[in-house]
Amino acid sequence: MARFISIGERIHVISPVIRKALQERDPKPIVERAREQVEAGANYLDVNIGPADRDGEELMPWVVKLLQQEFPNTPLCLDTANTKALEAGIKVYDRKAGKPIINSADAGSRIGMIDLAAEYDAMVIGLCAKEGIPRDNDERIQYCTEILDRAMAAGLDPENILFDPLFVVVKGMQDKQQEVLEALRQITEMGFKTTGGLSNVSNGCPKELRGLIEATFCAMAIQCGLTSAIVNPLNRMLMDIIKTADVIKGRNLYCDSYLEL
C-alpha cells in the first residue's frame, strides 16, 4: 500500500505575498514557500495561480519551470480553473518526479478537466460536487459516478483520479462531518483514491485551534480510507500524525526514527 500523499497548499494566490510575487514574476517568495513546505515533508506542491484570465498561459509555465528547477524531486499540483493555463503548465512539466495533478475537476462545469487529464496523462482531483456543496452522500456518490463515467469515456484510468468528497467547515457544518467521513469510506470501498482540503474543516476557527482540528480530522479520515490531503505542511502535529498513521496502517515499516524521515 502506497504512503499517504501530502499536498502542500501554501503557494496560493490568496496569500498577498504570493499574489504579488506571481504578478511581478518574483521567484524568491515562491521558492521560499516551496522550500519550507518541502523541508516540512510535503510530497506534492499545490500551485494556485487563481483564475489568471489575463496571463495564465504564460504564468503557469513560468511557475512550473521555476519550482521544478529548484525542487526536481517534488511533483506539482496545478491549481487553476483556467484550462489554457493548465495545458501550458503541463506542456513544460517534467514528469521525472511524478505525474502532475490537475486541481480540479468536478461533476459540473469543470468536468472537462477529466478529458484534459486523459489527454495529457495527468492525475486529477475529482471534486464530488456540481454546484456548491453536495446536499448529502447520495449526491456525492452520484457525482463521483458521473466523474468516473466521464473518465471511462475519455480513457482515463481511475487510478489517476483523487476523489474529493468536499470537506466542510466544522464551525457551522458540524452535523455534516460524519457524513464526509462516511463518503470517504464509501469511495474507498469502491477501490478509489481520495483527497480533500483540510483547511476547509478548520476555516473560521481561532488560529490556535486550526492545527489541532485539521490533524484530528485527518487522522479520522485516514482511518476511513483517505489516501492524500491538501495540507499545511508547517503544521508539525499534522505531519507527525500523518507519518504515524502510515506506520499504524502498515504503509511504512516502523523504526524508532520514523518521524525523522
Binding site: 515499516l253 516502523y254 523504526c255 524508532d256 526514527s257 525523522e260 524521515l261
Partner: peptide
C-alpha cells in the same frame, strides 16, 4: 525488522 531499518537510518 525494525532494528534493521533503524540501523540503516
Amino acid at each position: 525488522l525494525n532494528l534493521a531499518k533503524q540501523l540503516n537510518i
